[in-house]
């Protein structure tokens, strides 16, 4: 009965998916590796019939190209700062949400709202909030964030305009990325907390444990698989950071005075495409893949030691 008829039927059902995957997923993987290891591979030259020697020239060129290290530094910094910060904040918010009765649903709805937004569009809102409008060096509007700072007696800061400092720019990006990363993490962590057996908490209450002790000694260990999950996906997503920066700074990827200052690894790869220097772009993409793989493996290794399943 379970026969040749089912065999070919199954392949017919799978045919559209397989064809598309072969063209747009499998072939790209193979081809990227091929292009990356052909020295100085260039699409234009390849069409012209030029052949290339095999080697790792592209990787060297990718690393030595002017802003590679800047891109790598920006990406790594954003990851290392925003992933732990947003995870911790999401953990606190989830724990708080999990402990309340009234308003829980309404507040959960609010906290998940940033998930459904367009990261370019809201990036433009953040840019407006941090922007200083000046005409002939006279500040007209300092921007709402600076207004708040001045209200508390501080000095206004040039966050994103021409002449702003690197760390001012980074601060804006860090705030925006954390704001953007919270909803997914809260959703996963809150879901995890709701499935923790209530008996643990009852036992802790009988023992008279404090709230923070309950959070760090019961909730966090029992939640550790979910925490590991959001940290790992956070790092993977973080290394692909790009659109949020385009949202705030535009395609200049930095303040007008220093374009490309905030560029990331993904931005680096895309910048190469129109110049058909595919060899370098492919090498950069493989480097990014390698970094993500290593970071994920480190994460898994750490979580193996720390996570209680």
């Amino acid at each position: 009965m379970v026969d040749s008829k089912q065999q070919w039927k199954a392949w017919i059902y799978l045919a559209p998916a397989i064809v598309l995957l072969l063209v747009f997923t499998v072939w790209p993987i193979i081809n990227t590796v091929i292009m990356a290891f052909q020295n100085d591979y260039n699409a234009m030259a390849a069409v012209g019939g030029q052949t290339f020697t095999i080697g790792i020239e592209n990787f060297k060129r990718a690393v030595e190209y002017r802003n590679f290290l800047t891109c790598l530094k920006n990406t790594a910094l954003l990851c290392v700062i925003t992933v732990p910060a947003s995870t911790l904040l999401a953990l606190l918010i989830s724990a708080a949400l999990n402990s309340i009765g009234p308003l829980k649903k309404a507040l959960t709805t609010v906290f998940f709202l940033p998930y459904v937004t367009n990261s370019i569009a809201i990036g433009m809102v953040f840019a407006a909030m941090f922007n200083m409008v000046r005409t002939v060096r006279v500040v007209q509007t300092a921007g709402i964030i600076n207004n708040v700072i001045m209200f508390f007696g501080g000095e206004p800061i040039n966050w994103i305009n021409a002449g702003s400092t690197y760390w001012a720019n980074m601060t804006v990006m860090i705030i925006y990325i954390i704001w953007n990363a919270l909803p997914f993490k809260i959703l996963i962590l809150l879901g995890g907390m709701q499935s923790i057996n209530k008996q643990y908490y009852d036992a802790a209450k009988v023992d008279g444990s404090s709230r923070s002790r309950i959070l760090w000694r019961i909730t966090v260990p029992l939640l550790s698989p979910m925490i590991a999950y959001v940290v790992i996906t956070g790092f993977i997503g973080g290394f692909k950071e790009y659109t949020s920066i385009v949202g705030v700074f535009g395609e200049t990827m930095g303040p007008v005075s220093d374009k490309g200052r905030l560029n990331t690894m993904v931005g680096y790869i895309y910048d190469t495409l129109p110049r058909s220097d595919y060899g370098r772009a492919s090498a950069a993409a493989l480097i990014l893949f390698g970094i993500i793989l290593v970071v994920t493996l480190i994460n898994l290794w750490v979580s193996k030691k720390r996570v209680h399943y």
Partner: peptide
């Protein structure tokens, strides 16, 4: 595999 790896070849395709 990160999508960025596909983009270069897909752009060409």
């Amino acid at each position: 595999i990160p999508g960025e790896l596909f983009t270069i070849t897909n752009y060409r395709t």
